[in-house]
């Protein structure tokens, strides 16, 4: 017990007493469950060095799911959980009228997997693309963990269950649509693309900057094409990329919808990008539980 007290007190000074108590409890539970592979003192030490709790525990709940998390793939955020659940209530596909869904920048696969889990069996074929091999491996592992079928083929098919196919691809590659062998049109396109500006990136907390994939965070990658000068530095490059994809014929069904997570101060810019470049006149902004703008929801 005294050792536990010591651990708690060092955690307390790092995180504050309330968070320290809860995090210690979760680490203890994970250590007990791991039957020896995780040891509490080592876990606390890692935490004190600044590693995110989720990587130490190895999992993160997301809606009703318990997903695997592995560095450096981005840890699913509660803001994303909130809007994904909202989307799952807003759209209710059925096995009679199944839909196909594309998640750009899928990371751990959290968004399509939660939708597959919530919607009726046989009502959705979901596809996820990511540039990172670690992410695609993790998304595939998570599909298996959640009991979601990973089909071999690209063509949407009627199964009595929902499916999710993670694929390695670069959405900023001009030949992306062709090379990824995607089968548009999609009824729903979701994305939580990297949106942090270069300036914000420099000031990120060490647990983010030091552990999560920079490609998952930085909204304006330096490689081509350079973002338009007027707004360089706002972290909006991926929204332009996505809008250009959306503007192509037949990627979205006529009544299809798009849900994009955004940074707290990007709502106006992203709405305009969707309307002007994405040719999606109808847009709304959703807020997160902390009352910040978090999603641009768009359609025709």
């Amino acid at each position: 017990m005294p050792r536990l007290t010591r651990l708690l007190s060092s955690l307390s000074s790092a995180l504050g007493p309330e968070s320290a108590r809860l995090e210690l409890k979760w680490m203890k539970e994970a250590a007990e469950r791991s039957s020896g592979s995780l040891r509490l003192p080592a876990m606390v030490e890692r935490r004190l060095r600044g590693e995110p709790l989720q990587y130490i525990l190895g999992t993160q709940p997301f809606g009703a799911l318990d997903l695997l998390v592995r560095p450096p793939v981005l840890i699913p955020r509660p803001e994303t959980e909130d809007w994904t659940l909202r989307l799952s209530r807003l759209i209710q596909p059925s096995p009679e009228r199944p839909i196909s869904l594309l998640d750009l920048c899928t990371g751990s696969g959290c968004i399509p997997l939660l939708l597959c889990n919530t919607w009726k069996p046989g009502s959705v074929n979901a596809y996820g693309v990511d540039i990172s091999e670690d992410a695609i491996q993790l998304a595939t592992d998570n599909a298996h963990r959640c009991g979601v079928h990973v089909p071999a083929e690209m063509q949407p098919r009627r199964y009595p269950f929902n499916t999710f196919k993670p694929m390695l691809a670069n959405i900023r590659d001009p030949s992306f649509l062709l090379s990824a062998e995607l089968r548009p049109p999609f009824h729903v396109i979701t994305s939580n693309p990297p949106y942090i500006s270069r300036q914000d990136f420099e000031n990120l907390p060490p647990s983010v900057k030091g552990y999560e994939d920079h490609r998952a965070l930085i909204g304006d990658p330096t490689v081509y094409p350079e973002p338009p000068c007027s707004e360089s530095g706002k972290g909006l490059t991926f929204y332009h990329t996505i809008a250009q994809l959306l503007a192509q014929q037949d990627i979205l069904t006529d009544n299809g919808v798009v849900a994009l997570e955004i940074g707290f101060n990007q709502a106006d810019d992203v709405r305009q990008i969707m309307q002007n470049e994405g040719k999606l006149p109808k847009t709304e902004v959703w807020r997160d539980p902390w009352n910040r703008d978090r999603v641009v929801f768009a359609g025709r």
């Binding site: 968070s19 809860l22 995090e23 995110p52 709790l53 989720q54 981005l74 840890i75 955020r77 509660p78 803001e79 994303t80 939580n192 990297p194 949106y195 942090i196 914000d200 990120l204 907390p205 647990s207 983010v208 999560e212 998952a216 965070l217 997570e261 940074g263 707290f264 997160d288 902390w290 910040r292 978090r294």
Partner: peptide, 13 residues
């Protein structure tokens, strides 16, 4: 509060 929230923060709140 979560500050900027979203990708900026990975603390459990």
């Amino acid at each position: 509060s979560r500050g900027a929230g979203g990708q900026h923060v990975n603390k459990t709140e």
